[in-house]
Design a binder for these strands. Structure first.
Lengths: 338, 338
DNA sequence: ATTCTATAGTTAAGCCCTTAACTACCGGCC
DNA sequence: GGCCGGTAGTTAAGGGCTTAACTATAGAAT
């Protein structure tokens, strides 16, 4: 592999000149510039990133951190769409993505992650920091490494989705269709910080429709498809009068619909089922899912841009991204007999 | 951040001693060792990875490469399970994962990826190298960087799933149930190298049952759920006599089942639909999908171990991982009237 | 003629670690 | 006594890049 020195020798200049030309420093004649670039080309020179990192302190690597909890991450399409957004933005800006999935405990992050952060290998961090048990970005920020949260902890720059609005819209939609016997497939607040907002939004929506959210049957799952089916089963067995199920994510909604079908309740004719997230499969599902679009890729893209700002020493504004109701065919008015 | 020097000073030894103690080089008294370790502890010393990389040539970063083609990668649960396997193995061995999704063209990989590979930042590569248009690992190996393929190119160390066996098992299962009017939801060979093997396996299975694979209706999708629905629609409209649909992945099978439902054909009573991959949702689907288990996480784990071998200068044996038929409830014998 | 500024480029220190080569000491052996 | 091998540690040379500080020249301003 040719080095800066080789290029310098070939171009008949000093290594400093080569380095500066390559980083577009002013005050060089066009001739010198061309000389250098030709030499670079001829030798097929590619900068050694380790050397550059050591010397400049910049690695051009950002860590994308998805704490490893329940099944999540590698099973959650919603997370993946966020990753997709991050990836596309980072690649445009020449940053590389290091994927890190630290284990979280009440003591904080695991040792491996700590070392990674402190090793100077990482220019910045984007973290999905939504598990109440421990914060990922706290330790990162303490070491003065730029970090952006995708989430609800709000202890530093963050992007998040307007979950309160989302679940409000959802409840309004369901009550607006005429439902009043509504069940909720939720998730424990210990699993995800957004849950509080989502529950609050549902409550507000219920209030607005003159319903008491507190008395609505609710069973918590763990976001997996299977748990959605199980919760729906319990809910429908204990409360056969329910005409609608609001699920806190799409996967549980899909599970609920499959379960409903087994209980011979067709969706949406006999039962309205709605989800949350608008994962890619939601539109292709049968019936297509009424859900809340969180603009997942946009979350990732915004987080990335905020991080780039931070790396440029600007301080970005945190943003709360609006959510949008997507009405498809899994929701309908209740049967008149109900 | 404290450096090696700081530690050395504090422990009253040379930097070489510290470095060697930390890498477990023999010939130090227990006393010296403890001295050093105490100093490390007291100062909270964490090695600077860039410096280590520059000096030793090892970064402890491996690139996990998922070429960006059709929708894939960020939408494909199967790919994610592979990633899960890689992640768990790498974290155990102290390697970090850099996620790279180069754009492929007939000219090869994109420039950004080329630079990454040549920058010396990467110790090794694990690539999902299954798109016929261009090889990812070719350029990597040309630069003498250890690389393992998860795939069917077989131009270097690789792991792959026994697709021929898998699709043979599937066809045997379907014909064994008594089906003979079988449709195939395939995928163009240009999309994925495994397709040839899968088609060959199906053909062999058909032959064995005395059926002519060549005359079975076949329409190709692109692995997405939506395309599965579309293919199923065309297939069932043009060939209402079909009693079974073999789909080349689970997502298309799910789409096909949803479509069948809309055409008022219940699965499996009126129509058998089988998939391939055994993604997590396959078991939770309604009806649970009969499919082929590819042991995706194991693919990732094996690939990682092979790469570690390569990094240790051993040459690993390539492996073809057996596939397994998973019979669930989306397949059943055809109606007697049929 | 002198000083100043802008332009164009070089020198060399420094980033932090690894490791080959070397020193030093001690006990054992012929 | 001289030599050897094993043990315990040090010295110092890089590895490839960035960048502060410096030199040098030409033209403009005083």
């Amino acid at each position: 592999m040719p080095t800066l020195q080789d290029v310098a020798k070939r171009a008949g200049v000093s290594t400093a000149t080569v380095s500066k030309v390559l980083s577009n420093t002013p005050y060089f004649t066009d001739e010198t510039r061309e000389n250098v670039l030709h030499a670079v080309d001829a030798l097929g020179y590619i900068p050694n990133l380790a050397a550059r990192a050591l010397s400049s302190g910049k690695t051009h690597i950002i860590a994308v951190v998805f704490p490893y909890v329940y099944d999540a991450i590698f099973a959650d399409p919603h997370v993946l769409r966020i990753l997709e957004g991050i990836e596309s933005e980072c690649r445009e800006h020449g940053y590389n993505i290091l994927l890190s999935t630290p284990r979280l405990s009440p003591d904080g992050v695991d040792e491996h992650f700590r070392q990674l952060i402190l090793s100077g290998y990482i220019d910045g961090v984007i973290a999905l920091d939504n598990v109440p048990v421990a914060s990922v970005t706290e330790i990162v920020r303490r070491k003065h490494i730029p970090a952006v949260d995708i989430g609800y902890r709000k202890s530093g720059p963050y992007v998040c989705s307007d979950d309160h609005l989302g679940s409000l819209l959802m409840m309004q939609h369901v009550t607006g269709l005429g439902h009043s016997a509504i069940g909720v497939v939720g998730a424990p607040e210990a699993l995800h910080l957004a849950n509080q907002d989502r529950i609050a939004g549902l409550r507000e929506g219920a209030d607005a429709a003159g319903l008491d959210f507190g008395t609505m049957p609710r069973i918590d799952g763990d976001f997996s498809t299977g748990s959605g089916a199980k919760c729906a089963q319990l809910l429908l067995e204990q409360h056969p009068e329910l005409t609608a199920l609001i699920c806190l994510n799409d996967r549980m909604a899909m599970g609920a619909i499959q379960q409903a079908r087994q209980l011979e309740r067709s969706v949406p004719a006999d039962l309205t089922v709605v989800g949350y997230d608008d994962i890619p499969m939601a539109a292709a599902f049968d019936p297509p899912l009424t859900t809340i679009d969180q603009q997942a890729p946009e979350l990732g893209r915004i987080a990335s841009r905020m991080l780039f700002n931070l790396l440029d020493e600007h301080s970005p504004e945190s943003v709360v991204l609006p959510t949008r109701l997507v009405v498809r065919r899994s929701s309908a008015p209740p049967k008149l007999s109900a």
